[in-house]
């Protein structure tokens, strides 16, 4: 299963990934993105593609 990498410099906490795959992505109380173990690969891929700042990357 591929892994998600977050570029912290670029992520601005828009939360689009969390809307797409809430079980994997979660903005915590400080607005910092937490990434849990990917479950549904299709949803994760959509979330990575949907990131408005391109902060997410899928790595095999």
């Amino acid at each position: 299963m591929s892994r998600v990498v977050v570029d912290r410099e670029v992520c601005m906490g828009a939360g689009v990934c969390e809307m797409e795959a809430p079980e994997v992505f979660e903005l915590d109380a400080d607005g910092v993105l937490q990434v849990h173990e990917p479950t549904d690969p299709a949803a994760v891929e959509t979330a990575v593609r949907a990131c408005p700042t391109g902060a997410l990357q899928l790595i095999d």
């Binding site: 601005m12 906490g13 828009a14 939360g15 969390e18 809307m19 809430p22 979660e26 903005l27 109380a29 400080d30 607005g31």
Partner: peptide, 10 residues
């Protein structure tokens, strides 16, 4: 980043 915290999906 400051204001985004108030607008997260959760």
């Amino acid at each position: 980043r400051i204001v985004a915290k108030a607008f997260t999906p959760r």
